[in-house]
């Protein structure tokens, strides 16, 4: 299977490129980037070809592309790829507006391409363990979830409100919104959000707290803040405290790490040894067109997660909870 990468604006592109190298019978045919220097450097790093434009990349004999541009450009790049008949793995969030997101759903339906949202957290083995326990009924009914997806301030397009569609809330809400929908087969019905800029001198919000009402009668908070200091011992966290009537459980991705203490600065680091979720994300994408089926994470999943983030901004503006459905 032959893949291309459209833009390295999002740092996950580097991880996906590495994973492509590991996957059997999958080849990274080329990359294109609106930033020529960044694109050329990435092509060299991963031993592949640099294409001076997205069009030229799409004209080559590719099966699919990974879109890791600024969030705002997901729609136009998806439309270009779909027009060229290429399957798409799209970085999250799906888009910066619901209008763009629905346009993407439409173009996927019309062209029949395979389209997968990059919600790699579904492939975390601890998340899959949680889902299995819930489906076996061992967790009982879901009561509440407290969750965090903390990170460091990422810079780049992430702090450009136009290009990213927001700040920390847009960046980090969608992973947990997608996980709760998928694990518990529920929908977010109402969103309340506090948000602000309290850590960094940047144009977007860098912290917040969402409180959600779920259609299954449970409730949830999501802390999506870029509140980890640059010296933090890993990139951030993905954490869920799940409380059911029969069992409580914690998912704590980065705890599958060892502590590494050195003479260098920062002297304390976590060395992660858990499974590489990006490997399984890209494998699912490739498998979907190998097997001629839609991937398990659809464009509508991208829409539903984006609705939560968009609802959060509206709630923060109005100072009231916002009903989604």
């Amino acid at each position: 299977m032959r893949l291309g990468i459209m833009s390295f604006a999002h740092m996950h592109a580097y991880s996906y490129a590495s994973v492509i190298k590991e996957l059997p019978d999958v080849e990274l045919v080329g990359v294109a980037d609106e930033n020529q220097d960044r694109g050329k450097q990435a092509a060299e790093q991963f031993g592949t070809r640099y294409f001076p434009s997205f069009d030229e990349l799409l004209k080559t004999d590719l099966d699919g592309v990974i879109i890791t541009s600024a969030n705002r450009d997901h729609r136009i790049l998806t439309e270009m790829a779909a027009a060229a008949g290429k399957h798409v793995l799209c970085e999250k969030p799906i888009a910066t507006t619901l209008e763009d997101a629905y346009a993407m759903v439409k173009v996927v339906q019309e062209t029949g391409i395979k389209f997968q949202m990059a919600f790699p957290c579904r492939f975390i083995p601890s998340v899959q363990r949680l889902k299995a326990l819930y489906e076996e009924g061992r967790l009982g009914r879901l009561l509440a979830i407290r969750s965090t997806n903390h990170g460091k301030m990422p810079g780049g397009f992430f702090i450009d409100p136009e290009a990213a569609g927001g700040g920390a809330v847009m960046d980090h809400t969608v992973h947990l919104a997608d996980l709760v929908r998928w694990v518990f087969q529920t929908e977010v019905v109402e969103v309340y959000c506090e948000m602000d800029r309290r850590f960094h001198d940047i144009p977007t919000e860098d912290c917040g707290l969402l409180t959600l009402e779920l259609s299954n009668g449970a409730f949830m908070t999501i802390d999506p803040s870029w509140s980890r200091p640059d010296s933090f011992y890993t990139w951030g966290d993905l954490y869920m405290h799940v409380v059911g009537t029969a069992m409580a459980a914690e998912v704590d991705l980065m705890r599958q790490s060892m502590e590494r203490i050195t003479l260098d600065q920062p002297s304390y680091q976590w060395n992660f040894w858990g499974a590489n979720m990006d490997y399984y994300l890209v494998k699912e994408f490739v498998d979907s067109f190998r097997e001629d089926r839609q991937p398990i994470i659809t464009a509508m999943d991208g829409v539903r997660a984006l609705e939560v983030a968009i609802g959060a901004y509206e709630s923060a503006r109005r100072g009231q909870p916002v009903k989604l459905r």
């Binding site: 309290r198 912290c207 409730f219 908070t221």
Partner: peptide, 18 residues
């Protein structure tokens, strides 16, 4: 009984009490 509280302080701090 399980409770999740969202607090906004006058200083602007955003709090989450579980």
């Amino acid at each position: 009984e399980h409770v999740l509280v969202s607090l906004r302080f006058k200083s602007g701090v955003i709090g989450n009490v579980e």
